[in-house]
Design a protein around this nucleic acid. Sequence first.
DNA 1: CATCCGACAATTT
DNA 2: AAATTGTCGGATG
Length: 920
Amino acid sequence: MNAVEIEEAITALADQPYDAAEFPFAFLLAFGNKDTTIKRLRAGSSNKSDLGGVLQANNIHIKTCAEGQANATLAALRDSPATARAKAKFILATDGTEFQAEDLTSGEAIICAYADFPNHFGFFLPLAGITTVRAIRESAFDIRATSRLNRLYVELLKDNPDWGTAARRHDMNQFMARLIFCFFAEDTGIFSGDATFTRTIDTMSARDSSNTHEVIGALFHAMNTRPEDRTAEGIPRWADPFPYVNGELFSGTTEAPRFSKIARSYLLTIGGLDWTQVNPDIFGSMIQAVADEDERGALGMHYTSVPNILKVLNPLFLDDLRAALEEARDNGRKLLNLRNRMARIRVFDPACGSGNFLVIAYKELRAIEAQINARRGEADRRSEITLTNFRGIELKDFPATIARLALIIAEYQCDVLHRGQREATRDFLPLDSKNWITCGNALRLDWLSICPPTGTGVKLRGDDLFSTPLDQAEVDFENEGGETYICGNPPYLGSKWQSLEQKGDLKNIFDGRCKNWKSLDYVAGWFMKAADFGSHTPAAAAFVSTNSICQGQQVPILWPTIFGTGHHILFAHTSFKWANLASHNAGVTVVIVGITSGPSPIRSLFLLSDDGETIRRETANINAYLVAAPNVEVQGKSRPMSGQAVMQFGNHPYYGAPLIFSVEEGRRIVAGFPQAADFIRPLYGSQEFINAAPRACLWIADENAEAAAAIPPIAERLKATAASRRAAIRDKAAQKLAETPYRFRDQTTAEGHVLVVPRVSSENRPFLPIGLLNAAAIIQDQAFALYDAPLWNMALIASRLHLVWIATVCGKLETRYRYSNTLGWNTFPVPPLTEKQKSDLVACAVSILLAREAHFPATIADLYDPETMPDNLRAAHDRNDETLERIYIGRRFRNDTERLEKLFEMYTKMTSKKVGDARA
DNA sequence: CATCCGACAATTT
DNA sequence: AAATTGTCGGATG
């Protein structure tokens, strides 16, 4: 169960009549325990309670009690020896009126009315195993509110299908945003004491809900009408206490959808929540799920945590402002200059979602400004930082609407925090009517018109007029001498997952500027647009991105193009795993890259140390691989550049899954038809090689096709292969291969021996897996093969030097090594080798093989486990490295940094010489 | 023809 | 549930 489902379940539980006997079980059920677990607890077999309650080991001790006994019961639970013995994390006591609980690990306690306990569900989330993401526990309110709003949204659309159509979706979204604003306003004092939004709806609308929409409509109408115009507009007297809000939020239609009885009661419940607790950055990111079928249930999928947002914003500009604040000390003049500078900083998020980057940036700037004002003795001064300087583009209407609202709420909260409730309320209404969040396709819109450069009057112009309502972003606003910072977390989509439209977006940006742009990730578009923006006006940009744009094939496509615009990498954060609110937190490994065309003599590279700490390193340059080294982009080559043997891609089955089977299956076939033995060979991909567990495959030469097909179990598999190839109707290559179902697409084998290199393998091993197999072995496409290659090639691949190269210039699968013949092997710089050097290396390779042999039948995975790697094997690798590195520089390298430096240097020399040759 | 990628995916601990 | 570690398909060059 995810957090939303749990919230729904315990809300339902609290709504039911209290049943003392059932409560503990219902409670545990709501937190996602399986029926069988509950059954066992009921039966008593797993119930460890010594007080007649319910005690689930390692989790919680619950006891219901007589009226008024909750406090005493909680004390008894705390003192119970069974609680300690079963290592309970929580204790809980309730009499159906009062509810008490304690987190025994932290000592945190809850005492509340029984009906209110769902408000504290975040407290108990560890019961459901949701502990890793702190933000969830700390934003229990946001989850509750989101989940309720979602139910209201769905209910309203059910009764008002026309509001769900494309034409009215915006009205619907704006309606929801207005509701949220009103809930927030009535709880935080933005509305005066008489303007109680929820209670007014409750009392003025009929219980049968028939006129709810009219009451809400009247309230919205009032909020869109100046006090002096209200009589003329016929605003009812009971709507009069509500202030004029405007701010575009209430302009346009004030019509409301019709409410069913259920929808009305949802509305009143949501209004009853304590909206002072809303956290705009978290709420905003979660609420996207409210209006999006795809994201519903996968709540918070694109949630960017505050620490991650700060990883972008701090090095981009906040650190610099804080340093300036530090430097200004109490110097009034300097403080004033800094405040003036900050008032003209623009933050632009061209993939803003519901605006959490903008909200955090705004809050941080306000915090710095508050310090300036405090030092200048102007603590309650009105802020110079205007919301119009926080701009965004968002594709979807609902998040775009919410982003504006989130900023408005953030502004109010900052005013309360830094200037006090009274000042905040006095200056808040009416809202500014300008729209500074544009709904549209960021890759098609002209960023210069959304953030016009200083001194010029660029008008908004969308490249695609149909997806860009022209009136949306007409904020004429020039920012003389101001700084612009672009930031965000745009969507990532690998080249073959993109829709035609998305491909078109990239074509629009990259076509004619670089070749092979079709292989770029969708996120590359944002970097390129940011670079183009920065070429027109001073700016710096930093995005969270999938790490693949800084790896392998994308590097030589994207980065020379970006560097060509005069940009460089200002700071970067190397790969770290993405974390979101989903309970199993799979997904993606990301980097953060900041670029600018301005001066930046010192550049910051952030890395995660082994114990998870972020380390900052200052360097003169950061290259496209996010390495502190000169710019190099390694271009794949189809032939080795330095005299290595040819490395081939393994044999691709190409829809030939039926050609592959287990070794046991192979034995069964041979047992029935001994003549089949001639056509069955051991098969090795990555896994099979690393774990010394080959599979079997059919391996049939053209001239044996008929003989093989005469064997029934083989014939069956050939038929299946032909069928699966024919089924790939759009793949021409597959259609052709259907005519030769007895063979893999490729059919290459060795004469004597073959060297195998897995395509993907764990990054935890100290050396790359490489091995020697006899000629019978078939290498499948999951591994590379060097057929009959001299063993000194193996010495190269087994070296630390080669691992460093592969780890840097090849792609990765998340952080796994992904070997590539074109990118990594063919480009690997090797000095010319003498026969003596070759035979020395062969000896090294042989001694590695012999060292492994001594541990037979240990697999590569066993032998190269960093914890348990045998000493003799380590020694053999050490000799290999010693021998090879002496060939390179006449001594051992000091460390991997030096190894990489040398390899990059050799590569640069190697490739620039090629260019020279071409000219000559 | 050859190959590089996956807001991953399957398996183990 | 978290940690570990590499399949498989197929568009792209």
